[in-house]
Amino acid sequence: MLRLSSLLVVALVLILGSVSAEVINFQTCPDSVDSCTIQQVRVTPCPEAKQNLACNVRRRRSTKMSFDFTPNFDADRVEATLGWAKSETEELPLLTMDRDACKYTTCPLRSGVTQTYTTDVPIEAKFPLSAYTIRWSFKDPVSGKRCCFTNDIKVVR
């Protein structure tokens, strides 16, 4: 009976956690279309997503971001980057981000197996108040294949 109660509590927490996350719009990077499929991207909190607007992320607070992806490659290790996509070829990286993606998703990656990456992104006080297109990238350091997408955010007070 205690085990059943514990399972129900865990299930309820998972359901409530997924309900509070907002599904947002994103664009797959052109060079990763053949390497990876991004199914869904979620940001918590992001009430703006209901109107298809960029998420307002608050300075000095953490924002939870997660996404479901299916790589079309195998990788024992994956490096993550997140940065401001100033252009298609220029990116200003978030230096404080942990690059070891295996801490936030299951490794090794296997081709055709869908999985989820989830992390808290600290929005530092020094970030200028502005709208940004951010680029997420998960790269196999051996083959160079990657999963990549962009989405819009707005840093607010």
Rank of each mutant, 00 (worst) to 15 (best):
S111D: 09
T96H: 11
D68A: 15
C46A: 07
A54C: 10
Y117Q: 11
Q40G: 05
L53M: 14
S35G: 07
N151R: 06
T116Y: 02
D76G: 15
E90Y: 13
R60T: 15
C147G: 02
R3D: 07
K64I: 12
W84C: 04
R59M: 03
D31M: 00
S6L: 15
K139H: 00
Y117V: 10
V41Y: 06
L53Q: 15
D31K: 00
L129E: 15
N72P: 02
D74C: 07
T118H: 02
S87G: 07
P30M: 02
L7P: 02
R59V: 12
R110F: 10
V13G: 03
C148K: 05
V156P: 03
I153F: 05
R157V: 05
C148Q: 06
S35W: 02
S32R: 00
D120V: 07
R42Q: 14
D140G: 04
F138N: 01
G144R: 13
S62I: 11
D98C: 03
E48N: 04
V43K: 05
A125N: 14
K139S: 01
K103P: 02
F73L: 04
R58Y: 12
V10L: 15
S137P: 05
V121W: 13
I134F: 06
L14G: 08
L95I: 11
L94Y: 15
Y117K: 09
T89R: 14
T133Y: 04
G83M: 00
P122H: 07
F138Y: 15
K154M: 08
A85E: 04
S18F: 06
R99D: 04
Q115V: 09
D100N: 12
D68F: 09
W84V: 14
T96W: 11
T63P: 02
E48P: 01
W84G: 03
V33I: 12
C46P: 05
Q51D: 12
T37D: 08
T70L: 00
T133I: 15
I123T: 01
T118R: 09
V113D: 08
K154T: 12
A80Q: 13
L129H: 11
I38H: 00
T116P: 00
D68M: 15
F26V: 01
T81V: 07
V9D: 08
T37F: 05
L16Q: 06
G17H: 04
E91F: 11
R77T: 14
Y132A: 03
T89V: 15
L129F: 14
W136Y: 14
I123F: 01
F73P: 00
T150A: 00
S20L: 09
V9F: 15
E91A: 12
P47S: 08
K86Y: 11
Q39A: 14
T96R: 07
P93Q: 13
W136H: 15
P128Q: 10
P71Q: 03
W136K: 11
R42I: 09
T105P: 00
M97Q: 08
T150L: 01
D34A: 13
L109A: 10
